[in-house]
Amino acid sequence: MSYKAVIIGGSAGSFQVITKILANIPAGFDIPIFLCLHRLKHVRTGFEEALSIKSTLPIIEPYDKQHIRPGKIYLAPANYHMYMELGNTFALSTEPPVNHSRPSIDLSFFSAAYTYKNKLVGIILSGANKDGALGLKQVKLAGGTAIVQDPNECQVKTMPTAAMAATDVDYIFTTDQIISFLKKI
């Protein structure tokens, strides 16, 4: 199985997990990683910088229609939904929040599932709501690999639990297991 992209959704309690994952991605990682993370409403800037400190790969908040490149980490910009289009470009949207979230994890996962089909890894981390559950289900339906962070390890387990209820996930992983999985793909 050769994957073409990884998409990660996270909310409350996911920041340290993401930071640890990004610090351990091998430097030659040659597919894009999409991050769709909820942030506090007023934290519009600084998030990219905070995540960048320990990341081995560059982190980019993409502009609309920007090309998707391998080996880059793309963070959904504040107050936009982020879609991955066929033809390797982003499309952003300011349509209203879905489940109180913009960016919406579900919407990003839907578009990634459509675009990358069985070549996608979808990962849902710690979070206090159900965003991402339908998205991960769609990843699985499209033939991709569905992973959740082990609820026993999560600061807030609502999000991975909701995803597990919505779909039959492939793996329930601790942060370290997620890292070793990503190192092998």
Partner: peptide
């Protein structure tokens, strides 16, 4: 129109 964002509007 941008295809995936348009698809999303129609889905809605």
């Amino acid at each position: 129109y941008s295809e995936r964002s348009f698809a999303r509007r129609i889905d809605k």
